[in-house]
Amino acid sequence: MAILVLAEHDNASLKLDTAKVVTAAKAIGTEIHVLVAGHECAAVAAAAQQLDGVTRVLVADAAAYQAHLAENLAKLILELAPGYEHILASASSVGKDTLPRVAALLDVAQISEVLQVLSGDTFVRPIYAGNAMAKVQSLDDKKVLTVRASAFDATANGGNAGLETIDKVIEARTQFVSQSLTVSERPELGNAGIIVSGGRGMGSGENFAMLEALADSLGAAVGASRAAVDAGFVPNDLQVGQTGKIVAPDLYIAVGISGAIQHLAGMKDSKVIVAINKDPEAPIFQIADYGLTADLFEAIPELIAAIKA
């Protein structure tokens, strides 16, 4: 039962999500191949070779794959598809852009946001913003799956997979023009062990400096609710929730966040949830492990001072 996993990377380093998707693949079968498509990505391929459970790494190294355009990747995967029964990718922006195209070209149904693998054809995925779980069985010859990486632990290193070069270069009509990225020394939101998130209660974007100071004292990432993003307090790449990033850190600190269903869907799997809100009836307290009913503008400076003491 051969499985193809699309690697998530930036052409220089392999993202942790790939190791988590490999864990999901290991629950399906033992013949796991990782596709590394990019440009000047030898370091990424070497990292993929070390993932436990991976038996082969396929490398497509060409300028056409540098920007990871879905049109190019989907057609490349289509070329490789005859040799695989399962095709997996992280439910990231790249995976969610690429695999639906692959499924359409293969004329099969995609199963999205897989949280659990029950067997080679049966999976668990969330519905109704995560308020219910659906057990889905696929009878298609090829299973195309996006995996919610936060639901799986990363597979360990220690593997020694073989390397195979893919010479097929696919040029799509779509062209990469530019991208604007938020540069930060803090941990990446999707892989952070601790996340400090702010909501509409922060009042303004300037007040997020307080959360950034708290995050820096904890070595944490900074997140936000959709309400804070829509209000223009912070850029949308910090959004946690159903329409943002799905996270499951060891510690999630929600500050000034009421707890709308949209937000809870993105963070309720966190190991420990701490809520700080002046409204004792805020829904966030229903799922929080620890709650503090207080004015955040007093509580956060006191918390920072206590951490530094």
Results as ranks from 00 to 15, higher is better:
Ser93Ile: 14
Val94Cys: 00
Val94Leu: 14
Val94Ile: 12
Gly95Asp: 04
Gly95Trp: 02
Gly95Gln: 04
Gly95Phe: 06
Lys96Asn: 12
Lys96Ile: 05
Lys96Asp: 06
Thr98Trp: 05
Thr98Ile: 01
Leu99Tyr: 02
Pro100Ser: 10
Pro100Glu: 09
Arg101Val: 00
Val102Glu: 09
Val102Asn: 06
Leu105Ser: 15
Leu105Lys: 15
Leu106Thr: 12
Asp107Leu: 09
Asp107Gly: 13
Val108Asn: 09
Val108Ala: 07
Val108His: 07
Ala109Arg: 12
Ala109Ile: 08
Ala109Thr: 14
Gln110His: 06
Gln110Tyr: 08
Gln110Leu: 12
Ile111Asn: 12
Ile111Met: 13
Ser112Lys: 10
Ser112Leu: 08
Glu113Gly: 05
Glu113Lys: 06
Glu113Cys: 07
Val114Pro: 05
Val114Asn: 06
Gln116Cys: 13
Gln116Val: 10
Gln116Asn: 14
Gln116Met: 12
Val117Asp: 14
Leu118Ile: 14
Ser119Cys: 08
Ser119Glu: 07
Ser119Tyr: 10
Gly120Gln: 15
Gly120Asp: 15
Gly120Ile: 03
Gly120Leu: 09
Asp121Tyr: 11
Thr122Ile: 07
Thr122Ala: 04
Phe123Ser: 03
Phe123Glu: 06
Phe123Arg: 01
Val124Pro: 01
Arg125Ala: 14
Arg125Gly: 08
Arg125His: 11
Arg125Pro: 04
Pro126Asn: 02
Pro126Ser: 03
Pro126Cys: 01
Ile127Val: 13
Ile127Pro: 00
Tyr128Trp: 04
Tyr128Phe: 11
Ala129Gly: 00
Asn131Ser: 07
Asn131Gln: 07
Asn131Met: 00
Ala132Cys: 05
Ala132His: 00
Ala132Ser: 07
Met133Phe: 11
Ala134Val: 08
Ala134Cys: 09
Ala134Glu: 06
Lys135Val: 11
Lys135Gln: 13
Lys135Cys: 04
